[in-house]
Design a protein around this nucleic acid. Structure first.
Lengths: 225, 225
DNA sequence: AAAATAGTGTCTATCAGACAATATTTT
DNA sequence: AAAATATTGTCTGATAGACACTATTTT
């Protein structure tokens, strides 16, 4: 079969919660097109490489996180004929949720990679159609917090209920009642399970530590205000 | 830029509800690979053609439905290196929901197109990775019925509450209480609006006709048993 | 009249949201 | 002691699900 010339890329919306805010990893483009503009990390799919493999490779290159335990899911594919001035490039977008990294961003492209608060990314500043991809990725994350235990993907292996609440508040941009949240989370079957210890890292009375449970869907779902 | 040889296709999961059952449009492949096997309709993306344009073109070719009002949404992209024996072909899958067609399937490829009950499609019978694509498409439809007014996409412009309930029952495979369903649907803001008339096409007491409302998300959502 | 479907009303257990009260830490 | 956070409990209004009952058609 003969194929039209076509490039296939995987781009990543890598989200984390730092300082109580939802942040996305952006890179400053060093080369044309869109030189000097912010862009989502990504790269071309290699021959014989699966799409998710490409995404995980790029994730590791940009963050140093190579664990299979990092949450990564496909969001959508963007293929408008004119979305890349270099020619026809179709991009498969992935959403990655990572905990607040103890180590700073590391890896080969690290020099140009920065965490940027999602609320402060402005529409015209991103290369290609990356603003649209970012918006779709963020919306996916917001929606999935409701009915999946995905919020735990932003947390370290052991976390407190209030840290988990901080994730919801940052992603949704809404304050939640600590008391109702606590009750809801601990009563939702298999959402979180007690890890045994306590911590005072959040100040005040020691909080119980939890780790994520086995649930894949939350019954009942968490509700946005 | 030079690109690796690569094909880009759009494949369609076209669902409808006929005779109270969820059905999918499949075609019998006339040529290799997988000659004689059932497959999802689809085709290659043309140069300068947007992905959704390809999907709508294929939809029109297979069903004769060219209206922009047909619900069509992207589901996921499949790109395992060995998924097509002809070479590297990446497929963007779309989900289309169509009403029970008054006219039989028509169009250029119609000769080989048939409605098949989803519950009776068996895993090994489909070409390529189409069983996986079908499963993902059906799961998407099932999930979206809960929190979106998507069920109306299976209905004609004017429908009764019990016809809408029939859609839910067919897609979810669960019987629903007609009385609670009626109350729930009519009380959910902007889900359906009265069209004015009534019909006795379902037998019994005349039922009010409705058409779809302006809601894009259902508050509260419909709940699966 | 009998059967079929449409639609309304009622009851109960559960849940979301508001918020009081108590517990245990650091400053 | 004061401030901060954690956790439990209580109250109220809304809702889901079960199901009795009434309404309007066809057979």
């Amino acid at each position: 079969m003969d194929f039209e010339p076509l490039g296939l890329a995987a781009d990543l919306v890598i989200l984390t919660v730092r300082d109580g805010r939802l942040q996305v990893l952006l890179i400053r483009r060093g080369i044309a097109p869109y030189q000097g503009r912010w862009a989502l990390p990504g790269g071309f799919v290699r021959p014989d490489e699966d799409l998710e493999t490409t995404a995980r490779r790029e994730l590791a290159e940009e963050t140093g996180l190579s664990s299979e335990r990092i949450h990564l899911e496909q969001v959508a594919t963007y293929g408008a004929p004119d979305r890349d001035p270099r020619g026809r490039v179709v991009s498969v977008a992935y959403l990655a949720l990572v905990p607040d990294l103890p180590a700073p961003v590391a890896g080969s492209d690290a020099a140009s990679a920065h965490w940027v608060e999602v609320a402060e990314v402005d529409a015209g500043r991103l290369a290609f159609d990356h603003h649209r991809i970012l918006a779709d990725g963020v919306e996916r994350a917001r929606a999935k917090l409701e009915y999946s235990p995905l919020a735990t993907a932003f947390c370290p292996p052991e976390f407190t209920i209030s840290e988990l609440r901080g994730v919801y508040e940052a992603v949704w941009g809404t304050p939640l009642d600590p008391r109702n949240f606590h009750r809801k989370v601990t009563k939702t079957a298999d959402f979180v399970v007690p890890a045994g210890g306590t911590t005072t890292r959040d100040g005040g009375r020691p909080a119980q530590l939890f780790h994520r449970g086995t649930a894949t869907t939350l019954h009942p779902p968490m509700t946005r205000a």
